[in-house]
Nucleic acid binder design. Structure first.
Length: 676
DNA sequence: GTGTTTACTTTTTTT
DNA sequence: AAGTAAACAC
């Protein structure tokens, strides 16, 4: 590895990379080469002879972790198998994987996502006799999540759930499961109760690097402090803090300065990404925030670029069509590939209309919104089978597939089992065994037999995988057959076998992706548990940057990315800033502004802002017409211009298309689509 | 015990 | 609009 650090980095970056000893805080503005600095820093450490296993880099999203690992490998040009680059949550999971025994869980614990969590909370509530018709398990379970993550508290009406919370926590232990928040909270508990274990982890990592530091929560900060020594480097930008709703606390920047008084603070304000107009707009907008470290991005190239374009539309589908039309125009006039465009939305719901427009015009696109592949019913069923195999006490998984395909265990049977389990404070698996040993009557006997044949299926699966008789993917394919799942799909969709085939295909895709993962040389542990831990933490598909496609993303998902041209539809009061953040109490307008800032700074050359008066909201049209976002007024007028007049620079067919587009929005309902 | 109909809410953002 | 959960019929 030969890297000329001084030549490949600017002076501030160079300092950030080479200040390897002692605490460092890097305040890195948008587009200042933050990821680059981290990658080079890792390379620097390795070039100094630091062993890979002594380096820990923590990021916030799977996507960032993956990208960082890939870029580091490319730069260093050798495999980095012993380097730890992971998210806080998966790092927490790996700590628990080794040492959860100290806390009274078993190593084969399951990781619950929010739907498992909500369901578990619901079970507990039912058990405790809450009236289920008014009980909102999603709401309560996210309250519990906040509680566990160390923000939010039980107050007022919510006090009644205190006992329920305790019950929920107990039930997780019975299920031998932990939830997302436990992945951070439990390692902290572990370290507090077992200093020897803490010392072992701490001694392993000599150099610790934290990315997106502004998005870390207080607990994550504590976890960092438990692991790191004095050679710790935090990289962040308070202006890009957009996760406070899940406990991110950019007060950690101040805390860090206080906890490491002698730290070196390095500021990266040189922006290599955007034109002068875009930077000026971004700086102007963010300067309205009172709570921030003062800084200003500047462009070393000094190019001004084109003004930002703002346009208004009668409704959201007209807005979507305008975005598509503009892209087609630029693609032609500037020879831009599709992947030069990013369409950034505040909410996933906004993406729908745009997706329709893209599909209609056959524009290739990728999206990170919407439920992930792993959320699909048939895929979740398969994962549930695997989870039961790994951890038979995982009741949420058991209840999901115990009668899928139908085994004649209906509502009554389920209630019987769950009732028995709850009364003895054991999992359904154990309850099934108890029933088998001491059945009372014919029905119980039959029930017990069915339950045990279900578990036998999963045990067989586990044994094959663990004895390495078959790789996971092959074992899964067999399981689909042995469980009769394929036949079940056919029966479920008797009237359209297309749907059945589609679902079967998804299962095949799952098996194929497992196979790929198993064969990947970077997979250190191709075991069942490792796989499940991995997929549990993937809540969203990170679309592998497919080339040649427009990106349609939420602003949150777009953080860290950049595009030649960015579209920002929905610049309306209520969307951006979002209504939920404007209303009384917990709302945080500054965070919304940061979100707007993040969106603006994704653009390299062109930025198109748009808004519309009427938006379609679940069926009907929105009650009151929307007003323009108050953030728009914060952009200096000199940087903005309106859309070009309709006919300018357009081909005849485009003009014609526009004409029909207008007709459609004026009269509605022209064409095959139905009107709400 | 299972299949069908009806009532109803929903996610702001993500690990 | 869509998808789920509960209510209802078989």
């Amino acid at each position: 590895m030969r890297i000329d650090f001084a030549a490949e980095l600017d002076p501030e970056q160079y300092r950030a990379v080479t200040t390897t000893e002692g605490p460092v805080l890097i305040v890195a503005g948008a587009g200042s080469g933050k990821t680059r600095v981290i990658i080079y820093r890792i390379a620097k450490l390795l070039s100094m002879g630091v062993p890979q296993e002594a380096i820990l880099a923590l990021t916030f999203t799977n996507k960032a972790a993956k990208e960082m690992a890939e870029r580091a490998r490319t730069l260093v040009r050798k495999p980095l198998r012993d380097l730890t680059i992971s998210t806080f949550h998966s790092f927490g999971a790996s700590i628990l994987r080794k040492d959860i025994g100290h806390l009274g869980w078993k190593e084969n614990f399951s990781i619950y996502d929010e739907s498992d969590r909500a369901r578990a909370v619901k079970e507990c509530a039912r058990e405790m006799g809450f009236s289920m018709d008014t009980f909102d398990s999603w709401k309560i379970s996210s309250l519990f999540s906040a509680l566990r993550a160390g923000h939010g508290e039980l107050a007022g009406d919510d006090m009644q759930y205190r006992h329920l919370y305790d019950e929920y926590r107990k039930s997780l232990n019975v299920y031998n499961a932990v939830d997302f928040d436990d992945l951070i909270a439990m390692p902290l508990e572990l370290f507090a109760a077992h200093p020897d274990v803490a010392a072992r982890w701490k001694s392993r990592y000599r150099y610790v690097l934290i990315d997106e530091f502004q998005d870390t929560s207080r607990q994550q900060y504590d976890l960092m402090m438990a692991i790191c020594g004095n050679d710790v480097c935090a990289v962040g930008d308070d202006d890009q803090s957009i996760y406070s709703w899940r406990g991110a606390d950019f007060g950690n920047l101040l805390r860090f300065e206080r906890d490491f008084p002698g730290l070196a603070e390095i500021r990266l304000e040189r922006n290599y990404r955007s034109t002068g107009s875009i930077l000026e707009a971004a700086n102007a907008v963010i300067s309205h925030n009172a709570k921030r470290k003062k800084k200003a991005l500047w462009s070393p190239s000094g190019s001004v670029g084109t003004p930002l374009v703002i346009s208004e539309h009668p409704d959201d589908s007209a807005e979507a069509e305008a975005v598509v039309a503009e892209m087609k125009k630029l693609r032609f006039s500037e020879h831009l590939p599709w992947d030069a465009f990013g369409i950034l939305v505040r909410t996933n719901a906004q993406a729908r209309v745009i997706e329709e427009a893209l599909m209609e015009t056959a524009v290739p696109y990728r999206t990170a919104g919407g439920p992930s592949f792993y959320q699909r019913k048939e895929v979740r069923d398969m994962l549930a089978y695997m989870r039961v195999a790994a951890n038979p006490d995982d009741d949420m998984a058991v209840l999901r597939v115990l009668n899928v395909p139908r085994r004649g265990i209906g509502k009554a049977g389920m209630e019987r089992l769950v009732g028995l389990a709850r009364s003895r404070n054991v999992s359904v698996h154990i309850a099934g065994e108890m029933l088998e040993r001491a059945p009372d009557g014919r029905i119980a006997e039959k029930l017990a037999a069915e339950v045990s044949s279900f578990f036998a299926l999963t045990v067989r699966f586990r044994e094959r995988v663990q004895s390495r008789a078959a790789p996971l993917s092959a074992a899964l394919r067999d399981l689909v057959r042995d469980a009769g799942y394929w036949r079940y799909l056919l029966e479920e969709h008797r009237d359209d076998d297309k749907a059945a085939a589609w679902k079967y295909r998804n299962i095949e895709l799952l098996a194929a992706s497992i196979e790929r993962w198993e064969k990947d040389p970077d997979t250190l542990d191709a075991g069942l548990f490792a796989y499940l831990a991995r997929v549990a933490l993937v809540t969203r598909d990170d679309p592998d940057d497919e080339e040649g496609k427009v990106s349609l993303l939420t602003i949150h998902a777009a953080k860290g990315l950049e595009f030649d041209t960015v579209f920002l539809p929905g610049c309306e009061e209520g969307i951006m800033p979002h209504a939920k953040s404007v209303e009384e109490g917990g709302g945080d307008i500054e965070e919304e502004r940061r979100l707007f800032y993040v969106a603006i700074t994704r653009a390299r050359k062109r930025l198109f802002l748009s808004r519309c008066a009427a938006r379609r909201v679940r069926g009907g049209t929105q009650a009151t017409p929307s007003l323009p976002s108050s953030f728009l007024a914060e952009i200096p007028a000199g940087l903005l211009r309106g859309p070009e007049s309709d006919t300018q620079g357009k081909s005849e067919s485009e003009i014609a298309k526009d004409f029909f587009g207008k007709m459609r929005t004026m009269f509605g309902g022209a064409g095959p689509e139905k009107e709400a």
